[in-house]
Structure formats: structure tokens, C-alpha cells
């Protein structure tokens, strides 16, 4: 089964780029390829001039579910990436500490994941992803499972982390508002096999407050994206019912 067709993306350094498309359009497959977990049948992933196909660990990748190791405390979960690379524990805790405080996890370092709220768990796994010391970060629907209120908080939190740490972020989402609110650029994918249907620049000024979502420019972008996605959603639905 073909998950992806000819797809070519160029992501400039330091940008926040969203991929949006109907479910099953191969966005997660694309992420797994970029993360080096899957080898594409054909094609290449170039980062900083070198091919990184099939080389996991080059980018930081936050999987859909967030995933904390349930038997580790929050702090031990957050430093997991550093631990895997063999950074001494003291050193990575010292590095993580200011961020933990800054991002509302202070006092919960020694707690286990099941003792935290969904939003806090998500922040913890996001922090772990950010602390991986990678220039490129892939986020696969990181806020999909959260309620609307928490989601809004997490979005502004992400923007803050992003401007603090200056990473390049690739972001998969189903949510048009989220894509516009967060991104510099948006790629719209077609139904399976996934192709790029449109590439949209989001020219809204930063920093964006919560009221950005009611501006005329925002609403205009939203109308455009809704139009693009509607057809694809219908095709995706038909594919699903044929299976």
C-alpha cells in the first residue's frame, strides 16, 4: 500500500511548519521517515547537507501519545534523551531544572506520570523532546488528546518554548485553527497516497496573542484552508468506507 506519493518539503531553519491533512494521509509515515525510523522506498532526507535516511536520533521526535515511561519519575523521564546519549545525570538535571520551573512542572519532579494531569504529562514529554539537543523537532499531533482549554494553554506554551530555544519545528495537526495560530508555513496534504496539495505562508505578525484568531487575516486563511481540506476529507472518508 502506498502511503505517500511524491512529497518534497524544504524547511528553513528556525521556522515552525505545520502539516495538515485528512486522517491516513501519510503524515505520520512522513514523520517516521524524517525521524529515521522508517526507510522510504525511494527518496532522501537531507539535513545540513547530509543524508539522514534511516538514522534515528538526528531529529527530536515526539510521538502522538506523548509517552512517558510510567515507572520513571517526571525528572527521569525528562532527561531520558540525554541519558540515552550518555550525558551524566547530574549535568542533565542541572540543564533541565530551569526549564522545569519555567514550564510549570516545578514540585512534580519526583512524581510519577500517573499522578499528573494530562496537560502536565504532555508538557513533560514535550520538554523531554526539546531537551534532546536537536535542532529539528517533530511533533505529531501533540495536543490531540487534550481538552480545548488545556490545548489553548499548551499552544501558547509551545510558542514560548519555541521562541526560547530557537528550534526548527515540524508540527502535524488535524486542527486548522491550531495550524494557523502556531505556524509560519502550512503544508496541506491530499488524501492517501499523500501529496502536497498546497503550501501556504502564514503572514500573521508575532508574537501572536489569543486574539489573533479573530483577526480578518486569520479568518481569511481559515476559509482558504477549509476549502482545501473539505474535498480531501471527503475522499479520505470514501477510501475508509471502501476498506
Amino acid at each position: 500500500m502506498r502511503a505517500l506519493d511524491a512529497v518534497s518539503l524544504t524547511i528553513p531553519e528556525g521556522r515552525l511548519v505545520s502539516l495538515i491533512g485528512p486522517s491516513g494521509c501519510g503524515k505520520s509515515t512522513l514523520f517516521n521517515i524524517i525521524a529515521g525510523l522508517l526507510r522510504p522506498t525511494t527518496g532522501d532526507v537531507i539535513a545540513g547537507g547530509n543524508s539522514v535516511v534511516g538514522r534515528p536520533g538526528y531529529v527530536a521526535y515526539m510521538l502522538q501519545k506523548g509517552l512517558l515511561l510510567p515507572w520513571r519519575t517526571i525528572i527521569d523521564n525528562i532527561i531520558l534523551g540525554a541519558e540515552v546519549r550518555g550525558v551524566p545525570k547530574k549535568e542533565s538535571i542541572a540543564r533541565a531544572q530551569p526549564l522545569i520551573e519555567r514550564y510549570g512542572l516545578a514540585g512534580f519532579e519526583q512524581h510519577y506520570p500517573h499522578e499528573l494531569s494530562g496537560g502536565m504529562r504532555q508538557r513533560a514529554s514535550l520538554l523531554r523532546t526539546m531537551l534532546c539537543d536537536r535542532d529539528v523537532v517533530l511533533l505529531d499531533e501533540p495536543f490531540g488528546a487534550l481538552d480545548a482549554q488545556t490545548r489553548l494553554l499548551m499552544q501558547s506554551w509551545l510558542l514560548q518554548v519555541w521562541s526560547d530555544l530557537g528550534k526548527t519545528i515540524l508540527f502535524v495537526t488535524h486542527d486548522i485553527d491550531e495550524a494557523i495560530y502556531l505556524s509560519d508555513e502550512i503544508y496541506v496534504f491530499t488524501a492517501r497516497p499523500g501529496r502536497i496539495k498546497a503550501h501556504i505562508n502564514v503572514a500573521l505578525p508575532r508574537p501572536r496573542g489569543q486574539d489573533a484568531v479573530t483577526s480578518t487575516a486569520f479568518v481569511e486563511l481559515k476559509r482558504q484552508l477549509l476549502g482545501l481540506l473539505n474535498d480531501e476529507a471527503r475522499i479520505a472518508e470514501r477510501q475508509e468506507s471502501l476498506q
Binding site: A35, G36, L37, P56, G57, L63, L67, L69, V84, R85
Partner: peptide
Amino acid sequence: KDLETLLFSLGASRFQVFAKV
């Protein structure tokens, strides 16, 4: 399997996945 994938995505070796997951 997702936890294994998570560790691999962090660049962990097979032995690290074994020991940590």
C-alpha cells in the same frame, strides 16, 4: 511497541531499549 519506538527515536541502541524499556 510505542515505548520501544520512543527510545529508538531518541537514538537508543537495542541494548538501551532492552534495559530501559
